[in-house]
Write a protein that binds this DNA or RNA. Structure first.
Ligand SMILES: NC(=O)c1ccc[n+]([C@@H]2O[C@H](COP(=O)([O-])OP(=O)(O)OC[C@H]3O[C@@H](n4cnc5c(N)ncnc54)[C@H](O)[C@@H]3O)[C@@H](O)[C@H]2O)c1
Ligand SMILES: NC(=O)c1ccc[n+]([C@@H]2O[C@H](COP(=O)([O-])OP(=O)(O)OC[C@H]3O[C@@H](n4cnc5c(N)ncnc54)[C@H](O)[C@@H]3O)[C@@H](O)[C@H]2O)c1
Lengths: 208, 208
DNA sequence: ATCATATTGTTCCATTTTTCACAATAACAA
DNA sequence: TTGTTATTGTGAAAAATGGAACAATATGAT
């Protein structure tokens, strides 16, 4: 069982690179082409594939279309992934208006908010009152949510949606949430991303 | 020289946890308190500190205020970090309106856009035409930028700001940019974050 | 003053991740 | 057909990361 997050991220990158190559008319690809496209090494590409039992052809590389099929299946992209956004504020609405997820088979199906002023059922992505979240999650069998509520509300909103059936949450609030049993929380912490960047810029500056 | 990104992320977490503890009135802390707060082990906390020459007191733990001073200095938080946003669209304006960075000593000082309709010099964070970016970066000695332009414009915008003196970029466009010499690009790729989450949710589902 | 105790700092060990290296082999050329 | 070459797949080596263990020691108790 693979627990290596970086490995899965690389699979996503290979997949994206393969679509670009396919769009350019390529039908096969070698491990070193892929390595170049995503910025890695050829042996790591092959090792990653081998972990998932993906094989190519000696001297012939990999068929792009069948490779994409396999990667897409591993990454759960053989079915449309329905996602909710909880918190229709600045970040939440930016995400709901973003069209880029759709080409990745990810569809934001609804937003939820406690502020009555934010409710808008006729939006392309409808924004509904939080009270309706539980029923919505259950009847539409949603498993994934993006959490974009104020920090103070994050844990209770998380508990609510997980109790309703959400299994995976991408959390934007910059604090450590306790994931309810059976659910996974990943964080996007932009403060920390910036701090990290600043650190490495400073280090580069000093060693220069 | 530390190249371990996770280690630096942990330093940020320690720092955040320390502020919370400080706000609760604590003046000292033990490695296992910190480990609990951030979800790690006590030896890792001590190891992280030791890497940076931070020492505490046998049996006495660490003084929170002096620990914070040291962490803040390592993380470059002893001076206000001025940051630009390039691209005042959905993501860019969400970031410019966000007040949360300020308490972290990060100040978004300006946004830049090519669309004349976006220009607004009297905004709390002024939004200026891209042509002015170079002069602004130079005269204000900005080193860090957030890139939130459409995918197609990302590489050229990156080249422009790095040529003007930007050393570190947090890029939201879901593609691999070529960092100009002497600059660092870190990516926030939400598509990939979601794919990753979906993968691990599926795995958990299956092994259940 | 002595002892017991709690906690650090660091060394050593285990695990994970990446890279190297090369045998196996499919494709192609002559 | 035979030989040459390019590329995979993988086992072994190396590097990086994380965790356990424990000696050193400051603190507080008796
Ligand atoms: N905006 C940014 O650029 C940015 C950057 C980094 C981190 N964040 C984090 O993202 C989160 C959201 O930030 P934002 O700027 O979008 O905030 P915001 O205040 O603009 O929006 C939050 C929304 O959540 C709604 N809400 C409050 N409690 C709720 C609940 N219990 N259930 C459902 N909805 C609820 C509010 O009505 C509001 O519409 C915060 O945790 C913030 O720290 C935001
Ligand atoms: N909005 C989201 O939720 C979201 C999610 C994931 C990724 N992204 C990525 O973030 C980036 C920005 O997305 P967005 O939704 O904010 O886009 P957007 O179209 O809302 O905004 C982009 C802004 O950049 C400006 N712009 C275009 N070219 C420019 C240039 N050369 N220099 C300066 N400004 C320029 C445009 O005028 C516009 O204001 C895109 O790469 C997108 O793929 C966005």
């Amino acid at each position: 069982m693979i627990t290596n997050k970086n490995c899965i991220i690389r699979l996503s990158r290979y997949k994206n690179a393969l679509y670009r190559l396919q769009a350019l008319g390529f039908v096969k690809v070698f491990s070193d082409n892929l390595a170049d496209s995503v910025g890695g090494t050829a042996s790591q590409v092959r090792k990653d594939f081998s972990i998932f039992g993906i094989s190519g052809n000696k001297k012939g590389g990999y068929q792009i279309d069948s490779l994409l099929e396999k990667l897409n299946s591993i990454l759960g992209k053989d079915q449309l992934q329905k996602v909710l956004v909880v918190g229709a504020g600045h970040i939440g609405s930016a995400l709901m208006r973003y069209r880029g997820f759709e080409k990745e088979g990810i569809k934001i199906v609804a937003g939820f908010d406690i502020d009555p002023a934010k409710i808008n059922r006729s939006n392309p992505v409808p924004i509904l009152p939080l009270d309706e979240a539980k029923a919505f999650i259950k009847s539409n069998q949603i498993r994934i949510a993006i959490l974009a509520v104020p920090d103070i509300a994050a844990q209770s909103a998380l508990d609510l949606i997980c109790a309703a059936g959400i299994k995976g949450v991408l959390n934007f609030a910059p604090l450590r949430l306790k994931a309810p049993d059976g659910s996974i929380v990943n964080n996007v912490n932009l403060e920390i991303e910036l701090e990290n960047l600043i650190y490495f810029v400073n280090v580069a500056e000093k060693t220069k």
